[in-house]
Design a protein around this nucleic acid. Structure first.
Lengths: 167, 167
DNA sequence: CTAGAATCGTTTGATATCAAAGCATCAGAT
DNA sequence: ATCTGATGCTTTGATATCAAACGATTCTAG
Protein backbone atom coordinates (compact mmCIF):
# COMPACT_ATOMS: atom_id res chain seq x y z
CA UNK A 1 0.00 0.00 0.00
CA UNK A 2 1.31 3.54 0.54
CA UNK A 3 5.01 3.70 0.20
CA UNK A 4 4.96 7.46 0.56
CA UNK A 5 2.20 9.62 1.83
CA UNK A 6 1.59 13.00 3.31
CA UNK A 7 -1.09 14.26 5.56
CA UNK A 8 -1.98 15.03 9.11
CA UNK A 9 -0.37 13.22 11.98
CA UNK A 10 -3.69 11.53 12.46
CA UNK A 11 -3.71 10.18 8.93
CA UNK A 12 -0.11 9.09 9.13
CA UNK A 13 -0.77 7.22 12.31
CA UNK A 14 -3.74 5.40 10.84
CA UNK A 15 -1.99 4.54 7.60
CA UNK A 16 1.12 3.43 9.37
CA UNK A 17 -0.85 1.17 11.69
CA UNK A 18 -2.71 -0.33 8.77
CA UNK A 19 0.41 -0.91 6.72
CA UNK A 20 2.11 -2.64 9.58
CA UNK A 21 -0.96 -4.73 10.23
CA UNK A 22 -1.13 -5.86 6.62
CA UNK A 23 2.57 -6.54 6.38
CA UNK A 24 2.73 -8.52 9.58
CA UNK A 25 -0.24 -10.66 8.65
CA UNK A 26 1.17 -11.21 5.20
CA UNK A 27 4.58 -12.11 6.47
CA UNK A 28 3.35 -14.60 9.07
CA UNK A 29 0.90 -16.18 6.67
CA UNK A 30 3.52 -16.53 4.00
CA UNK A 31 5.64 -18.61 6.34
CA UNK A 32 2.69 -20.71 7.39
CA UNK A 33 1.83 -21.26 3.76
CA UNK A 34 5.29 -22.58 3.03
CA UNK A 35 4.89 -25.13 5.80
CA UNK A 36 1.60 -26.38 4.43
CA UNK A 37 2.99 -26.58 0.96
CA UNK A 38 5.69 -28.84 2.33
CA UNK A 39 2.83 -31.22 3.10
CA UNK A 40 1.35 -30.76 -0.35
CA UNK A 41 -1.54 -28.63 0.88
CA UNK A 42 -2.62 -25.12 0.04
CA UNK A 43 -4.06 -22.85 2.68
CA UNK A 44 -7.55 -23.26 1.28
CA UNK A 45 -7.29 -27.03 1.21
CA UNK A 46 -6.02 -27.07 4.75
CA UNK A 47 -8.94 -24.94 5.83
CA UNK A 48 -11.44 -27.38 4.34
CA UNK A 49 -9.77 -30.39 5.90
CA UNK A 50 -9.45 -28.73 9.26
CA UNK A 51 -13.13 -27.89 9.25
CA UNK A 52 -14.03 -31.47 8.38
CA UNK A 53 -11.71 -32.79 11.07
CA UNK A 54 -13.21 -30.69 13.84
CA UNK A 55 -16.79 -30.25 12.71
CA UNK A 56 -17.39 -33.49 10.84
CA UNK A 57 -18.65 -34.14 7.32
CA UNK A 58 -20.71 -31.31 5.82
CA UNK A 59 -22.13 -30.05 2.54
CA UNK A 60 -20.14 -27.84 0.22
CA UNK A 61 -22.59 -25.10 0.87
CA UNK A 62 -21.92 -25.26 4.60
CA UNK A 63 -18.17 -25.38 4.05
CA UNK A 64 -18.43 -22.22 1.98
CA UNK A 65 -20.36 -20.48 4.73
CA UNK A 66 -17.99 -21.51 7.47
CA UNK A 67 -14.85 -20.68 5.53
CA UNK A 68 -16.35 -17.53 3.98
CA UNK A 69 -15.63 -18.74 0.47
CA UNK A 70 -17.75 -18.68 -2.65
CA UNK A 71 -19.50 -21.75 -4.00
CA UNK A 72 -17.36 -21.83 -7.11
CA UNK A 73 -14.19 -21.69 -5.11
CA UNK A 74 -15.29 -24.50 -2.83
CA UNK A 75 -15.93 -26.61 -5.88
CA UNK A 76 -12.41 -26.05 -7.11
CA UNK A 77 -10.74 -26.70 -3.76
CA UNK A 78 -12.76 -29.89 -3.25
CA UNK A 79 -11.99 -30.96 -6.80
CA UNK A 80 -8.30 -30.76 -6.02
CA UNK A 81 -8.60 -32.45 -2.65
CA UNK A 82 -10.60 -35.22 -4.28
CA UNK A 83 -7.98 -35.52 -6.96
CA UNK A 84 -5.40 -36.18 -4.25
CA UNK A 85 -7.63 -38.70 -2.55
CA UNK A 86 -7.99 -36.66 0.61
CA UNK A 87 -11.76 -36.16 0.55
CA UNK A 88 -14.73 -37.82 -1.10
CA UNK A 89 -18.08 -36.48 -2.22
CA UNK A 90 -21.31 -38.15 -1.21
CA UNK A 91 -24.53 -37.01 -2.80
CA UNK A 92 -27.43 -37.17 -0.36
CA UNK A 93 -30.57 -39.21 -1.00
CA UNK A 94 -33.01 -36.97 0.87
CA UNK A 95 -31.96 -33.97 -1.22
CA UNK A 96 -30.07 -34.79 -4.33
CA UNK A 97 -28.79 -31.28 -4.79
CA UNK A 98 -26.65 -31.65 -1.70
CA UNK A 99 -23.18 -33.16 -1.67
CA UNK A 100 -21.64 -33.93 1.69
CA UNK A 101 -17.86 -33.91 1.88
CA UNK A 102 -16.02 -36.53 3.92
CA UNK A 103 -12.35 -36.92 4.76
CA UNK A 104 -10.94 -40.17 3.39
CA UNK A 105 -8.83 -42.32 5.72
CA UNK A 106 -5.79 -40.92 3.93
CA UNK A 107 -7.08 -37.40 4.40
CA UNK A 108 -7.82 -38.02 8.05
CA UNK A 109 -4.35 -39.35 8.74
CA UNK A 110 -2.80 -36.36 7.00
CA UNK A 111 -4.80 -33.65 8.73
CA UNK A 112 -4.42 -35.34 12.10
CA UNK A 113 -0.69 -35.12 11.67
CA UNK A 114 -0.51 -31.71 9.98
CA UNK A 115 -2.92 -29.79 12.16
CA UNK A 116 -0.94 -29.98 15.42
CA UNK A 117 2.24 -29.17 13.52
CA UNK A 118 0.57 -26.14 12.03
CA UNK A 119 -0.70 -25.05 15.41
CA UNK A 120 2.79 -25.43 16.78
CA UNK A 121 4.16 -23.24 14.05
CA UNK A 122 1.58 -20.57 14.77
CA UNK A 123 2.62 -20.77 18.40
CA UNK A 124 6.19 -20.23 17.35
CA UNK A 125 5.34 -17.30 15.12
CA UNK A 126 3.26 -15.62 17.77
CA UNK A 127 5.93 -16.20 20.37
CA UNK A 128 7.69 -13.16 18.97
CA UNK A 129 5.23 -11.44 21.24
CA UNK A 130 4.91 -12.09 24.95
CA UNK A 131 1.68 -13.37 26.49
CA UNK A 132 0.42 -9.91 27.37
CA UNK A 133 1.29 -8.63 23.94
CA UNK A 134 -0.59 -11.50 22.32
CA UNK A 135 -3.57 -10.63 24.45
CA UNK A 136 -3.32 -6.99 23.45
CA UNK A 137 -3.03 -7.91 19.80
CA UNK A 138 -6.05 -10.17 20.04
CA UNK A 139 -8.11 -7.50 21.74
CA UNK A 140 -7.16 -4.79 19.28
CA UNK A 141 -7.82 -6.99 16.29
CA UNK A 142 -11.15 -8.13 17.61
CA UNK A 143 -12.13 -4.53 17.98
CA UNK A 144 -10.94 -3.77 14.46
CA UNK A 145 -12.49 -6.81 12.87
CA UNK A 146 -15.93 -5.65 13.91
CA UNK A 147 -16.00 -2.72 11.53
CA UNK A 148 -19.42 -1.84 10.16
CA UNK A 149 -21.33 -3.24 13.12
CA UNK A 150 -23.67 -1.04 15.08
CA UNK A 151 -22.95 -0.13 18.66
CA UNK A 152 -25.77 -1.98 20.38
CA UNK A 153 -25.18 -5.05 18.30
CA UNK A 154 -21.54 -4.91 19.24
CA UNK A 155 -22.33 -4.96 22.93
CA UNK A 156 -24.49 -8.03 22.62
CA UNK A 157 -21.99 -9.91 20.57
CA UNK A 158 -19.25 -8.99 22.92
CA UNK A 159 -20.92 -10.75 25.79
CA UNK A 160 -21.77 -13.84 23.84
CA UNK A 161 -18.37 -14.15 22.30
CA UNK A 162 -16.55 -13.90 25.57
CA UNK A 163 -18.17 -17.04 26.84
CA UNK A 164 -17.56 -19.07 23.71
CA UNK A 165 -14.22 -17.63 22.76
CA UNK A 166 -12.15 -20.05 24.78
CA UNK A 167 -13.56 -22.84 22.58
CA UNK B 1 -8.16 -21.36 10.36
CA UNK B 2 -8.94 -23.37 13.50
CA UNK B 3 -12.59 -23.34 14.26
CA UNK B 4 -12.02 -25.72 17.15
CA UNK B 5 -8.81 -26.59 18.84
CA UNK B 6 -7.51 -27.96 22.06
CA UNK B 7 -4.23 -27.48 23.80
CA UNK B 8 -2.45 -25.62 26.48
CA UNK B 9 -3.48 -22.14 27.50
CA UNK B 10 -0.35 -20.95 25.79
CA UNK B 11 -1.33 -22.53 22.51
CA UNK B 12 -4.87 -21.25 22.75
CA UNK B 13 -3.64 -17.77 23.37
CA UNK B 14 -1.32 -17.85 20.38
CA UNK B 15 -3.91 -19.36 18.06
CA UNK B 16 -6.57 -16.98 19.19
CA UNK B 17 -4.33 -13.99 18.67
CA UNK B 18 -3.43 -15.22 15.22
CA UNK B 19 -7.00 -15.93 14.21
CA UNK B 20 -8.13 -12.51 15.30
CA UNK B 21 -5.22 -10.90 13.50
CA UNK B 22 -6.05 -12.70 10.28
CA UNK B 23 -9.76 -12.02 10.54
CA UNK B 24 -9.33 -8.34 11.29
CA UNK B 25 -6.92 -7.83 8.45
CA UNK B 26 -9.18 -9.73 6.11
CA UNK B 27 -12.24 -7.85 7.14
CA UNK B 28 -10.69 -4.41 6.80
CA UNK B 29 -9.08 -5.27 3.50
CA UNK B 30 -12.30 -6.64 2.12
CA UNK B 31 -13.99 -3.31 2.71
CA UNK B 32 -11.10 -1.40 1.20
CA UNK B 33 -11.20 -3.69 -1.80
CA UNK B 34 -14.86 -2.92 -2.39
CA UNK B 35 -14.09 0.77 -2.44
CA UNK B 36 -11.35 0.34 -5.03
CA UNK B 37 -13.57 -1.84 -7.14
CA UNK B 38 -16.06 0.97 -7.19
CA UNK B 39 -13.37 2.89 -9.06
CA UNK B 40 -12.70 -0.03 -11.38
CA UNK B 41 -9.41 -0.94 -9.75
CA UNK B 42 -8.20 -4.10 -8.09
CA UNK B 43 -5.94 -3.94 -5.07
CA UNK B 44 -2.95 -5.02 -7.14
CA UNK B 45 -3.64 -2.41 -9.78
CA UNK B 46 -4.01 0.27 -7.15
CA UNK B 47 -0.69 -0.76 -5.64
CA UNK B 48 1.10 -0.36 -8.94
CA UNK B 49 -0.45 3.02 -9.65
CA UNK B 50 0.21 4.27 -6.17
CA UNK B 51 3.86 3.31 -6.46
CA UNK B 52 4.13 5.11 -9.78
CA UNK B 53 2.41 8.18 -8.35
CA UNK B 54 4.72 8.52 -5.41
CA UNK B 55 7.95 7.06 -6.71
CA UNK B 56 7.74 7.94 -10.39
CA UNK B 57 8.06 5.77 -13.49
CA UNK B 58 9.99 2.54 -12.97
CA UNK B 59 10.72 -0.79 -14.57
CA UNK B 60 8.46 -3.79 -14.08
CA UNK B 61 11.29 -5.50 -12.29
CA UNK B 62 11.50 -2.67 -9.77
CA UNK B 63 7.75 -2.61 -9.33
CA UNK B 64 7.81 -6.31 -8.54
CA UNK B 65 10.50 -5.78 -5.93
CA UNK B 66 8.77 -2.87 -4.26
CA UNK B 67 5.38 -4.52 -4.21
CA UNK B 68 6.77 -7.98 -3.38
CA UNK B 69 5.11 -9.54 -6.39
CA UNK B 70 6.41 -12.01 -8.95
CA UNK B 71 7.46 -11.00 -12.44
CA UNK B 72 4.65 -12.95 -14.05
CA UNK B 73 2.09 -11.28 -11.85
CA UNK B 74 3.39 -7.81 -12.59
CA UNK B 75 3.08 -8.58 -16.29
CA UNK B 76 -0.56 -9.49 -15.85
CA UNK B 77 -1.44 -6.49 -13.69
CA UNK B 78 0.31 -4.11 -16.09
CA UNK B 79 -1.41 -5.78 -19.02
CA UNK B 80 -4.77 -5.02 -17.48
CA UNK B 81 -3.85 -1.47 -16.49
CA UNK B 82 -2.59 -0.89 -20.01
CA UNK B 83 -5.79 -2.32 -21.39
CA UNK B 84 -7.71 0.30 -19.43
CA UNK B 85 -5.41 3.06 -20.63
CA UNK B 86 -4.09 3.84 -17.15
CA UNK B 87 -0.40 3.07 -17.76
CA UNK B 88 1.88 2.75 -20.74
CA UNK B 89 4.98 0.68 -21.34
CA UNK B 90 8.19 2.24 -22.63
CA UNK B 91 11.03 -0.02 -23.65
CA UNK B 92 14.40 1.53 -22.87
CA UNK B 93 17.04 2.17 -25.52
CA UNK B 94 20.08 1.69 -23.28
CA UNK B 95 18.89 -1.78 -22.29
CA UNK B 96 16.17 -3.20 -24.45
CA UNK B 97 15.25 -5.84 -21.96
CA UNK B 98 13.90 -3.18 -19.64
CA UNK B 99 10.41 -1.76 -19.83
CA UNK B 100 9.64 1.34 -17.78
CA UNK B 101 6.03 1.84 -16.74
CA UNK B 102 4.46 5.29 -16.81
CA UNK B 103 1.10 6.53 -15.64
CA UNK B 104 -0.93 7.95 -18.51
CA UNK B 105 -2.64 11.32 -17.98
CA UNK B 106 -5.84 9.37 -17.44
CA UNK B 107 -4.15 7.13 -14.96
CA UNK B 108 -2.61 10.06 -13.14
CA UNK B 109 -5.94 11.84 -12.80
CA UNK B 110 -7.53 8.66 -11.46
CA UNK B 111 -4.90 7.82 -8.87
CA UNK B 112 -4.64 11.43 -7.73
CA UNK B 113 -8.31 11.31 -6.96
CA UNK B 114 -8.55 7.78 -5.62
CA UNK B 115 -5.49 7.73 -3.41
CA UNK B 116 -6.63 10.39 -0.90
CA UNK B 117 -10.09 8.80 -0.81
CA UNK B 118 -8.51 5.48 -0.08
CA UNK B 119 -6.35 6.99 2.63
CA UNK B 120 -9.44 8.57 4.12
CA UNK B 121 -11.18 5.24 4.19
CA UNK B 122 -8.24 3.65 5.92
CA UNK B 123 -8.35 6.46 8.44
CA UNK B 124 -12.00 5.69 8.99
CA UNK B 125 -11.43 1.98 9.39
CA UNK B 126 -8.57 2.47 11.82
CA UNK B 127 -10.57 5.00 13.80
CA UNK B 128 -12.28 2.08 15.46
CA UNK B 129 -9.16 2.24 17.57
CA UNK B 130 -7.99 5.27 19.46
CA UNK B 131 -4.63 6.94 18.78
CA UNK B 132 -2.84 5.01 21.50
CA UNK B 133 -4.40 1.78 20.35
CA UNK B 134 -3.29 2.43 16.80
CA UNK B 135 0.21 3.02 18.07
CA UNK B 136 0.09 -0.20 20.05
CA UNK B 137 -1.18 -2.12 17.06
CA UNK B 138 1.54 -0.69 14.88
CA UNK B 139 4.22 -1.56 17.38
CA UNK B 140 2.99 -5.12 17.90
CA UNK B 141 2.66 -5.75 14.21
CA UNK B 142 6.06 -4.40 13.44
CA UNK B 143 7.47 -6.75 16.00
CA UNK B 144 5.57 -9.63 14.51
CA UNK B 145 6.37 -8.80 10.93
CA UNK B 146 10.03 -9.28 11.60
CA UNK B 147 9.80 -13.01 12.03
CA UNK B 148 12.82 -14.98 10.93
CA UNK B 149 15.26 -12.12 11.41
CA UNK B 150 18.24 -12.60 13.68
CA UNK B 151 18.61 -10.68 16.91
CA UNK B 152 21.55 -8.47 16.05
CA UNK B 153 20.13 -7.75 12.66
CA UNK B 154 16.89 -6.77 14.28
CA UNK B 155 18.57 -4.23 16.48
CA UNK B 156 20.34 -2.54 13.61
CA UNK B 157 17.25 -2.39 11.49
CA UNK B 158 15.27 -1.10 14.38
CA UNK B 159 17.43 1.97 14.70
CA UNK B 160 17.55 2.65 11.01
CA UNK B 161 13.86 2.18 10.56
CA UNK B 162 12.95 4.48 13.36
CA UNK B 163 14.55 7.41 11.63
CA UNK B 164 12.97 6.70 8.24
CA UNK B 165 9.64 5.40 9.45
CA UNK B 166 7.94 8.77 9.56
CA UNK B 167 8.47 8.98 5.79
C1' DC C 1 -51.14 -31.35 -10.30
C1' DT C 2 -48.50 -27.52 -12.25
C1' DA C 3 -45.78 -23.44 -12.53
C1' DG C 4 -42.68 -20.45 -10.43
C1' DA C 5 -39.35 -19.51 -6.89
C1' DA C 6 -35.59 -21.14 -4.14
C1' DT C 7 -31.53 -23.95 -3.37
C1' DC C 8 -27.24 -26.67 -4.41
C1' DG C 9 -23.35 -27.40 -7.04
C1' DT C 10 -20.97 -26.59 -11.52
C1' DT C 11 -19.35 -23.84 -15.22
C1' DT C 12 -17.70 -19.61 -17.24
C1' DG C 13 -15.11 -15.41 -17.42
C1' DA C 14 -12.06 -12.19 -15.18
C1' DT C 15 -8.23 -11.30 -12.14
C1' DA C 16 -4.75 -12.78 -9.09
C1' DT C 17 -0.44 -15.27 -7.45
C1' DC C 18 3.35 -18.31 -7.77
C1' DA C 19 7.25 -21.09 -9.90
C1' DA C 20 9.38 -22.61 -13.86
C1' DA C 21 10.42 -22.44 -18.60
C1' DG C 22 11.38 -19.71 -22.66
C1' DC C 23 13.15 -15.83 -25.46
C1' DA C 24 15.67 -11.56 -26.18
C1' DT C 25 19.24 -8.72 -24.55
C1' DC C 26 23.25 -7.45 -22.00
C1' DA C 27 27.79 -8.02 -19.55
C1' DG C 28 32.03 -10.16 -18.86
C1' DA C 29 35.67 -13.45 -19.77
C1' DT C 30 38.61 -15.54 -23.13
C1' DA D 1 35.06 -11.73 -32.03
C1' DT D 2 32.82 -15.49 -29.57
C1' DC D 3 30.86 -17.88 -25.88
C1' DT D 4 28.75 -18.22 -21.37
C1' DG D 5 26.20 -16.58 -17.61
C1' DA D 6 23.05 -13.08 -15.94
C1' DT D 7 19.03 -10.21 -16.44
C1' DG D 8 14.24 -8.54 -17.81
C1' DC D 9 9.96 -9.74 -19.43
C1' DT D 10 6.58 -13.09 -21.19
C1' DT D 11 4.40 -17.44 -21.33
C1' DT D 12 2.78 -21.66 -19.29
C1' DG D 13 0.69 -24.47 -15.83
C1' DA D 14 -1.41 -24.86 -11.35
C1' DT D 15 -4.27 -22.95 -7.78
C1' DA D 16 -7.09 -19.42 -5.94
C1' DT D 17 -11.08 -16.05 -5.59
C1' DC D 18 -15.15 -13.78 -7.07
C1' DA D 19 -19.74 -12.94 -9.51
C1' DA D 20 -22.89 -14.43 -12.72
C1' DA D 21 -25.05 -17.80 -15.46
C1' DC D 22 -26.61 -22.47 -15.84
C1' DG D 23 -28.78 -27.08 -14.93
C1' DA D 24 -30.80 -30.23 -11.64
C1' DT D 25 -33.52 -30.68 -7.66
C1' DT D 26 -36.68 -29.23 -4.15
C1' DC D 27 -40.31 -26.35 -2.14
C1' DT D 28 -44.45 -23.65 -2.21
C1' DA D 29 -48.61 -21.46 -3.81
C1' DG D 30 -52.64 -21.73 -6.56
Amino acid sequence: MPTHFEGSAETKRALSAFINLARATNSVQARLTVQLEGEGLTVGQFGVMEALLHLGPMSQCTLGEKLLRSGGNITLVIDNLEKHGLVRRERQTEDRRTIVIHLTPKGLRLIKRVFPEHAKMILKEMSQLGPNEQEDLRRLCRKLGRGGKSGSEKTKREKRHDSSESQ
